[in-house]
Design a binder for these strands. Sequence first.
DNA 1: TGATTTATGTCCCGCCTCTTGACATCTTTG
DNA 2: CAAAGATGTCAAGAGGCGGGACATAAATCA
Lengths: 195, 195
Amino acid sequence: MESFAERTKRRLRDELLDAAYDAIVSGGYDELRMADVGRRTGVSRQTVYNEFGDKWGVLEAVAARETERFLVDVNEALSAHADPIDGLRAAVERALNLAADNPLVKAALGQPGSDQASQLLTTRGQQVLELCQQRLGIHVREHWPEVPAEDATACVDVALRVVLSHIVNPGAAPAAVAEQIAQVLGPFLTSRRQV
Amino acid sequence: MESFAERTKRRLRDELLDAAYDAIVSGGYDELRMADVGRRTGVSRQTVYNEFGDKWGVLEAVAARETERFLVDVNEALSAHADPIDGLRAAVERALNLAADNPLVKAALGQPGSDQASQLLTTRGQQVLELCQQRLGIHVREHWPEVPAEDATACVDVALRVVLSHIVNPGAAPAAVAEQIAQVLGPFLTSRRQV
DNA sequence: TGATTTATGTCCCGCCTCTTGACATCTTTG
DNA sequence: CAAAGATGTCAAGAGGCGGGACATAAATCA
């Protein structure tokens, strides 16, 4: 049985993340105040530091949770198609559309006072990147049994980086990008496909 | 702002009451184990004692919460009518019907191993009685402005005791009892009614 | 330019709550 | 009669949160 204390701990973290999320979305990372996060949750400033270490830790934790939710949607699109190439195309399009609508992404990239927050998806993006690689990797290896694990990983890695690039620096429309990636990576997948 | 600690405290109490409620409903008061209440909630046995004092305290707390919920329904019936006598009749009928269906009432009165629990509504029923008097009193004084407070209180007190008696020791059908009480107390209310 | 304000990050200590283990007591069961 | 199981009490210990103080850096204001 999970203890009440453990559930309470998780709830605390969750409520802190809610408060931080709201603050970032409405005012940007620079406007985020550690004391506010605590106050909104009904907890001291020290407790926020105990939970996340520092202000950047808060942003990373918010991003990690948001990414997890994001990936649920993307994985859903991925596994909605039997053919890997179709799944890839659908997942890319879904990811780009979701990112375009996502308040946190907008706050990190678009709003003023997001000099630092934007690095979350660029120079300091390892965390998000690795999280996506891992989650997508697991999911793809399950749903693409005909593609060798190593090749699936490579494919995911390339597509992921292109998608991230398009999120940070938008190019063509989501559907067009998805089609482009499917066409470029399609032959690779086809050539590596096994019985 | 309410502190996180305060909310957590309330949540703990609520979850303990949920666990105790389930245990009582499924096995009766005698089958209730303090250690189980703690285990189901994910806290130690001592914490249960800290919160409720002793086993009877658990039962009283469960009953108090259930009574509060019960009264919400009854008060709703009471205030659905402009005329006090109609409200009285409706409230009595609602109360008796609710009690007849209530799992906790059944567990306290009907099930085997409820020798002690049944006292909750009889020889040790002051707590529930007073809670009802208070809540109903407040509500009636608000919704029966034409009846002097003292007379309203007396009316509520008499009706409440009759209803409780019918719950513990059922007589006629709820609607018939309600009609009877309305007829018996009606003249009193009418005579005391003011402009 | 210098002073003030504001926010981050760290440290420390007091307080409160929960946990754990032990114990006495009573009742039920074998 | 002995063992098991439950209630109720006590004390010691651990962990987390609150609150205050502080150093530091950046922005603001005079």
